[in-house]
């Protein structure tokens, strides 16, 4: 099987496409300093191709149909569209200045983009590639999340230190929730009941009740032998059953495993340096983490809660997206 796969991979990609469901399990990693995307074959657990993209690629995700990769080319003030089949850039979205991260509504449209330099969230209609709205939020908008029911969008702003709740219909900010210093990532639980917000400098994760729009809990971290100021929470992921949360702790080089019921950290997994964003494989067997300073991604076996592999990618890997097929 492995040899067969290797042979297929070195064969012309066009043939592969013709055969339909022929993608290996593939992860795409944005390399902020290399202006590239690493294509990682998860069966071989190695980088098989590097795609040149725009400047300072950061946020990365797949379209709902998984045909395209979207990547924020922050310093080019655009979002590039990459065709997964050909790995060619086939277009761009009018993201507004300095797009850093984004989130797609579950239906696949629209796309919500944080414009870090512009104190705005830009709403983009993906099929027509048009801007639908620009919503002013706080200073240095960063994390973006859409609630599972699609009715609420949350944006965090790093210098204002708030999670801004935006109504889907009116596209207006309807609530601002103060959190600890430098909020980075917002992530809804799959059941939509809570949104968790990581604060890089505060060193905490705030648990916000979606209905109350208020902080109802806070998670602190402590790693023996590490100064508290190197524990800087960034990426957050929930397992599909919402029972376990993983939080990337930046320069602490660890991922915290949290029981969402008790809100207690159960374990710290040692990964690469400056762990940033994370993504599950679709079967939830693995969790991948981007490690900005060691230029690799760590592969965590989710069931065993063990780091099983690190895979070399480009320089300063920032985000990761995994295709279901």
């Amino acid at each position: 099987m492995q040899t067969a796969m290797n042979r297929i991979l070195v064969a012309a990609i066009g043939i592969l496409l013709a055969s339909g469901n022929a993608f290996a399990l593939t992860a795409y990693v944005s390399n902020e300093r290399d202006n590239t995307i690493s294509v990682v074959d998860m069966d071989q657990m190695k980088t098989i191709k590097t795609i040149d993209v725009g400047q300072r690629p950061r946020g990365i995700l797949l379209t709902k149909d998984e045909k395209d990769i979207l990547v924020c080319a922050s310093d080019d003030d655009t979002i590039q569209i990459i065709d997964r089949a050909t790995l060619q850039i086939v277009g761009s979205l009018p993201s507004g200045p300095d797009p850093e991260t984004f989130a797609l509504r579950d239906s696949g449209n629209p796309l919500y983009v944080s414009n870090e330099n512009d104190n705005m969230v830009t709403v983009i209609d993906v099929p027509t590639r048009k801007v639908l709205a620009q919503i002013p939020t706080g200073v240095e908008p960063e994390g973006m999340a859409v609630s599972p029911d699609g009715q609420t969008i949350v944006n965090t702003s790093e210098t204002t230190n708030m999670a801004h709740f935006i109504d889907y219909q009116t596209r207006k900010v309807v609530a601002n929730v103060l959190v600890d210093a430098r909020p980075r990532v917002a992530m809804f639980k799959h059941d939509g009941s809570q949104v968790w917000v990581s604060s890089e400098l505060g060193g905490t994760v705030s648990i916000i009740d979606t209905a109350k729009r208020a902080v109802v809990g806070k998670i602190n971290f402590a790693v023996q032998g590490l100064r508290s100021d190197v524990i800087q929470p960034v990426g957050i992921r929930f397992t599909k059953d919402d029972a376990t949360a993983f939080v990337a702790l930046g320069p602490a080089n660890r991922v915290a495993v949290i029981d969402t019921k008790t809100q207690k950290v159960e374990k710290y997994l040692l990964v690469g340096q400056r762990v940033w964003q994370m993504a599950f494989t679709p079967d939830e067997k693995y969790l991948l983490t981007t490690n900005g300073l060691s230029n690799d991604i760590s592969v965590i076996d989710v069931a065993d809660q063990k780091v099983i592999k690190s895979i070399q990618v480009g320089r300063l890997p920032w985000g990761v997206a995994v295709a279901a097929q």
Binding site: N119, P136, T160, V173, N176
Partner: peptide, 9 residues
């Protein structure tokens, strides 16, 4: 930056 934040409050 203060005013962008302040506007929200």
């Amino acid at each position: 930056d203060d005013n962008t934040t302040g506007r929200l409050q």
